[in-house]
Design a protein around this nucleic acid. Structure first.
Lengths: 224, 224
DNA sequence: GGTCTTTCTTACACCATCTGTAAGTATTAT
DNA sequence: ATAATACTTACAGATGGTGTAAGAAAGACC
């Protein structure tokens, strides 16, 4: 069954939540240390996180933003802070739902259920602005159209998106793509960048890959 | 920009919602006739629907269920009915969010924005129970694993899922897959069914394709 | 139980696509 | 102007997907 992680410092409420989910046959765990919760959360590879805002150390807002940039499981914010601006901030940071305490367990369960169902359809999706990439199939989605890239082009785009908005060194691309093997033609990267540009051009994405002469490539920042 | 459809019988509120969304550069339209709203909604191919519950004719609940079975855009329920059981019912029928009137426009906009962002990542996804298929790439997801099918196998699975839980006639499969072309070996369907079964077996999905001797195939109904 | 029909399984060869190599052209920096 | 870097196009080998073929297994019917 799905794995849920609870990030909540009130031990009483945390245990209550754990019990609520455990009853429904979820595999559920609570975070107890708030010194460096980030890695603990990522390492547990949850299917969903229930996140409080008022935490010792990093706030739930910061945590939400940090997690959303590095993972693709849904985050449900559950907090006593019930102002509209809190909700707008949370949703703006990528939170998937926002519920206020006290929250009826059935409502929480229903919301969690819905998120799991929605996200169950999307595994291994990364996103930069409006650009979406499925890293299993290398399907690229932008606005209302899509292309399916061959493996090499897809891997290049994946690296560019993961490093966005930083520059990606040519050497990094070489070692990621052809690292283990023996010598390959220096030109191979340019050829594949060229192919990738042509593929993306069919979506109307001209010039989103910038060349930084002598160093490497990077994704152009574009309006969202 | 994204296209939103408003299904709300109170003309006053409807116009207010239309204005709210229009300001944010959404392409927005309202339903005015409630005799047969279903087809009008589908035909407009919206990216999201805002749906009231208390409607003349079919209720919003029925409409939600009907639409969810035939389309894949998100549905946000916006209603004056604020009981928990209404919310649970709506979410259970597949609604993606549930807000009660009166609702602050900013909250509504933020929720809509979030849904559009989430759904923007998932184009052309169909689902039967826990089984998910991307009909562009033929990536099949089940529980925590996935396979990418070759085109022919993927098309067969797509048809079986679209017709589920009905039986699919062998002739239908033949005409869908090899319809236009000249003669093909009768055996080709059996070979590809066999290949598809083996591919799905790598997910632990043994025997989900039933053979109906003399007629065709169908997807086994399994526990969700 | 025997026989006929239908379905399943495995192997093989053709074909399309992807990939790296090569060679030549264009662009940029100094 | 010249050299260095980046781009473009064409080509051939490798890979994986597809239909054909032939025989084995399973089910229906008497």
């Amino acid at each position: 069954m799905s794995k849920i992680i609870i990030i909540e410092d009130d031990i009483y409420l945390r245990e209550e939540l754990v019990t609520t989910f455990a009853k429904k046959e979820y595999s559920v765990s609570g975070i107890s240390s708030f010194v460096t919760p980030e890695q603990e959360i990522l390492d547990s590879e949850p299917d969903l996180a229930v996140l409080d805002i008022n935490l010792p150390g990093k706030s739930g807002f910061e945590l939400c933003k940090w997690l959303k940039a590095r993972s693709d499981f849904p985050i449900l914010i559950l907090t006593a802070r019930d102002t509209l601006s809190d909700e707008l901030l949370a949703l703006g940071l990528g939170a998937d739902d926002f519920l206020t305490k006290p929250c009826h367990p059935e409502r929480l369960l229903a919301r969690v259920e819905r998120l799991l169902q929605t996200y169950g359809k999307m595994r291994n999706i990364i996103q930069v602005g409006e650009l979406t990439l499925d890293t299993d199939t290398y399907k690229v989605i932008w606005r209302n159209s899509h292309v399916i890239l061959p493996e090499t082009e897809g891997k290049i785009l994946q690296i560019l998106m993961e490093q966005h908005p930083s520059l990606v060194d040519k050497q990094d691309l070489f070692s990621s793509l052809w690292g283990g093997s023996e010598y390959v033609d220096e030109n191979i990267l340019q050829v594949n960048i060229n192919r990738l540009r042509k593929s993306l051009d069919t979506l109307g994405l001209r010039d989103i890959i910038q060349t930084i002469r002598g160093q490497g490539y990077r994704l152009e920042v574009f309006r969202t």
